[in-house]
Design a protein around this nucleic acid. Structure first.
Length: 613
RNA sequence: UGCCCGAUGGUGUAACGGUAGCACAGCAGACUCUGGAUCUGUUUGUCAUGGUUCAAAUCCAUGUCGGGCAGCCA
């Protein structure tokens, strides 16, 4: 079980006999990325470890930036990530439900209870491999018939009433200052601001003005509702922050009902309160907002226990960018194929790439939770991916860049069926048959006429074992007029067959191969990291550091059984890497029936050795 | 030059006044019909200076460096 400073706080809270209730509150203005995955694993992990619930809530208070496409993708990504791990902790609510009015300690109050979404969300997989990776939620009704995530926008009525309550206590006011003037009045961090000339309007006048704001009597920007705190505070966020602004805009969830929309600071703490959140966990940049979070709740004189905010460092990953703005730029500029491009650090991109949810969770576990802003080495992610895939991936023989081999002493027309292990890490995975015949393909890299030191693959006059088959010796290199290798003539040691009585003879190298007659072709997309430098957004335009070779497409020769490859399975093409079917692939885009994506290469000790030379 | 937060090997993290540990990466070796996996060994660290204490990564002070805050974004 992971341990960090936030879990320590939660543990104390639980030891005192309290329930834990967290929430994951994304704004639906883009796709979720691996940084969100860190937050999801934290919030749902805490709920899971301490017997609590974690609500999924859209923080949708800005209608001009949010879209239903993002609402849907977020729900899908969250369910995929926590599937088989924390479904039972997922807090949802009945469709269309808004907060109940209740009385606590003689005070009128609002509350919206969660329903744990486990069974009803149809994400019940327990394996680390998702049954339908990357399948879009095309029909929102279908995805979850009776339950849905929480929406901050479902609280607009209550939020409005809380604002009125503040107004009645003379703790807020309607301010007519333009945005530019407000900037001037705010002052700068080391100089106090000055009071707005509208700061001391009467309660009656404020109430009237706020009502008229709500009724849409003023244009965008004409005025705002502000908290009356302290224009001289050293904390900028306490200098009479804006609570409501006017936006004559259609909202993806509330439609045309509202002309005023609450700001994050006002909506977030109260949404937490409404849902009975105990620990409101966010990233470090909100640390300076915490006094405001507390101020709003405290000054409303609420009857139930108040939520508290805790902050941790967001994820920075080497060789990638994380901000939604930059990711959106990559999408909009056509630099990648979409939010789910396999090179994107988005959850949907990683999923399409073949990364499993359990690998992502393992990654989140390994990086930990602190308040230190560091840069996490991608090697940690890559290790988590390989470790997970190594356990589950089915081994298959595929040649990415073929060189033809003719076994001159093997009978023409003869085909043998050889036994091959499906997964040496998992005896239950069994074996399969692969055809072997006179003409084969091997990897171009597995033969050279000029072997460097320690090269122990095939060379003229040298021997290698063909995995699961025979030891062969290269007798002759056949070239065309331009000197390009056309084929290799080899002889097989027919006494060396794998599993046979005389198979014990050792040779230095073992290589993979595919029988030419039975081979099937597939398009294989070899993805590499998107950027060439560890910190693409450190300075200047991050797009300058795009890796021009982040995608290479080859036509590979595959063992015939791969025609039945399944998108929910993961494959290891032996000695090459981990691959999966492209779930985002549209059949019309290629002449090949099969399209594989390389999730990640195998660790390659030879590449390191070769580099030394 | 205001306020808030942070600093432990190359990287990320643990140690909660009492032996600085783990993971990744690196290096060396064993094993291997995947140069994968596995196994073994191993290099490298408490930002600085003072103070408190029998004892400080930990507490205090000062400094240095890094991050955040001046949207009617979240």
């Amino acid at each position: 079980m992971p341990s960090d400073f936030i879990r320590e706080i939660v543990a104390v809270h639980v030891a005192e006999g309290n329930q834990v209730h967290t929430r994951f509150p994304p704004e639906p203005n883009g796709y979720l990325h691996i940084g969100h995955a860190k937050s999801i694993c934290l919030n749902f992990g805490i709920a899971r470890e301490f017997g609590g619930i974690c609500n999924l809530r859209y923080d949708d208070t800005n209608p001009t930036k949010e879209e239903v496409e993002y609402v849907d993708s977020i729900f899908e990504d969250v369910r995929w990530l926590i599937g088989g791990w924390a479904d039972h902790c997922l807090g949802l609510k009945p469709k269309g439900k808004t907060p109940d009015t209740m009385t606590v300690e003689g005070k009128s109050d609002f509350y919206l209870a969660p329903v744990t979404g486990g069974a009803s969300t149809k994400v019940g997989q327990t394996s680390s491999l998702p049954p339908s990776s990357g399948e879009k939620v095309r029909d929102r009704q279908d995805a979850c018939p009776t339950l849905e995530p929480f929406y901050a926008s479902d609280y607009f009525d209550q939020l409005y009433q809380y604002a009125v309550a503040l107004l009645k206590k003379a703790k807020a006011y309607v301010c007519d200052l333009s945005s530019e003037d407000m900037d001037k009045y705010r002052g700068v961090p080391d100089r106090p601001g000055k009071d707005s000339p509208f700061r001391n309007r009467s309660i009656g006048e404020n109430l009237d003005l706020f009502t008229r704001m709500k009724n849409g009597e003023f244009p965008d920007g004409a005025c705002t509702l502000r908290a009356k705190i302290d224009m001289a505070s050293p904390n900028i966020w306490l200098r009479d922050p804006v609570l409501y602004r006017i936006r004559h805009a259609e909202h993806h969830h509330t439609g045309g009902k509202w002309r005023i929309y609450p700001m994050y600071d006002f909506a977030h703490c109260l949404s937490d309160y409404l849902e009975g959140i105990t620990h409101s966990i966010c990233t470090l940049e909100f640390e300076v907002h915490r006094p405001l979070y507390d101020w709003i709740l405290e000054n409303l004189d609420l009857p139930r226990p108040l939520p508290h905010q805790y902050e941790f460092a967001r994820l920075s990953l080497g060789y990638t960018v994380m901000s939604k703005r930059k990711l959106m730029q990559l999408v909009n500029d056509g630099l990648v194929s979409g939010w789910d491009d396999p090179r994107m650090p988005t959850i949907s991109g990683l999923r399409r790439r073949g990364v499993t949810a359990s690998a992502l969770r393992a990654f989140a576990y390994h990086i930990g939770i602190t308040k230190y802003n560091g840069l996490t080495d991608v090697a940690v992610l890559e290790h988590a991916i390989r470790e997970d895939l190594n356990q589950h991936a089915l081994r298959r023989l595929v040649v990415l860049r073929p060189t033809k081999v003719v076994l001159t002493n093997f009978p023409e027309g003869k085909t043998e069926e050889l036994d091959a292990t499906n997964n040496p890490e998992d005896p239950n995975a069994g074996t399969r048959k692969v055809p072997f015949s006179r003409v084969l393909y091997i990897e171009q890299d597995d033969f050279t006429e000029t072997p460097p030191p320690k090269y122990f693959r095939l060379r003229p006059g040298g021997e290698v074992r063909l995995k699961y088959a025979y030891i062969i010796r290269c007798d002759k290199v056949v070239k065309d007029a331009s000197g390009r290798i056309v084929e290799l003539h080899c002889t097989a040691d027919l006494d060396s067959k794998s599993g046979g009585p005389n198979s014990g003879r050792k040779v230095k190298g073992t290589i993979h191969w595919v029988s030419a007659a039975q081979a099937i072709e597939a398009e294989v997309r070899l993805y590499d990291r998107l950027f060439t430098v560890p910190e693409p957004d450190a300075a200047g335009d991050f797009k300058q550091h795009l890796n021009s070779r982040s995608l290479e497409v080859v036509t590979a020769k595959c063992e015939p059984g791969l025609k039945d490859a399944k998108s929910e399975l993961r494959y290891q093409f032996e000695r090459l890497g981990y691959f999966c079917l492209d779930s985002g692939h549209q059949p019309s885009t290629t002449s090949h029936q099969l399209v594989f994506i390389r999730t990640i290469t195998l660790r390659d000790a030879w590449a390191k050795e070769a580099q030394k030379a």
